[in-house]
Computed example of a mutant assay.
Amino acid sequence: MKVTIDQDKCVASGQCVTAALDVFDQRDEDGIVVLLDANPPAHLADDVRQAAAVCPALAIIIEE
């Protein structure tokens, strides 16, 4: 799994961080998503998929 984010689309809702804390974080100054792990381990795959599904801006792209 490869994860990319589009920071320009991000609306800083924080849903991704809630779903996959080990993969996503937010910048302190504006809440925009920060990708911590572009190639997360298999045991986090479901969390990352959930994060992409709940992102209101569709800013998370997953390549399987």
Results as ranks from 00 to 15, higher is better:
Lys2Trp: 00
Lys2Ala: 05
Lys2Leu: 08
Lys2Asn: 12
Lys2His: 11
Val3Tyr: 09
Asp6Lys: 06
Asp6Tyr: 04
Gln7Ala: 14
Gln7Ser: 14
Asp8Asn: 15
Lys9His: 10
Cys10Glu: 11
Cys10Asp: 11
Val11Glu: 13
Ala12Arg: 04
Ala12His: 04
Ala12Trp: 04
Ser13Arg: 07
Val17Leu: 09
Thr18Gln: 07
Thr18Lys: 08
Ala20Val: 02
Leu21Ser: 15
Asp22Leu: 14
Phe24Lys: 03
Phe24Cys: 05
Phe24Gln: 10
Gln26Ala: 14
Arg27Lys: 15
Asp28Phe: 13
Asp28Val: 13
Glu29Leu: 15
Asp30Val: 12
Asp30Cys: 12
Asp30Phe: 12
Ile32Phe: 10
Val33Leu: 11
Val33Gly: 03
Leu36Phe: 04
Asp37Cys: 13
Asp37Ile: 04
Ala38Tyr: 00
Pro40Glu: 12
Pro40Trp: 08
Leu44Arg: 12
Leu44Val: 02
Leu44Met: 08
Leu44His: 04
Ala45Leu: 02
Arg49Glu: 13
Gln50Lys: 15
Ala51Asp: 02
Ala51Trp: 02
Ala53Val: 06
Val54Cys: 07
Cys55Asn: 05
Pro56Arg: 09
Ala57Pro: 03
Ala59Leu: 04
Ile60Leu: 04
Ile62Trp: 03
Ile62Glu: 06
Glu63Gln: 15
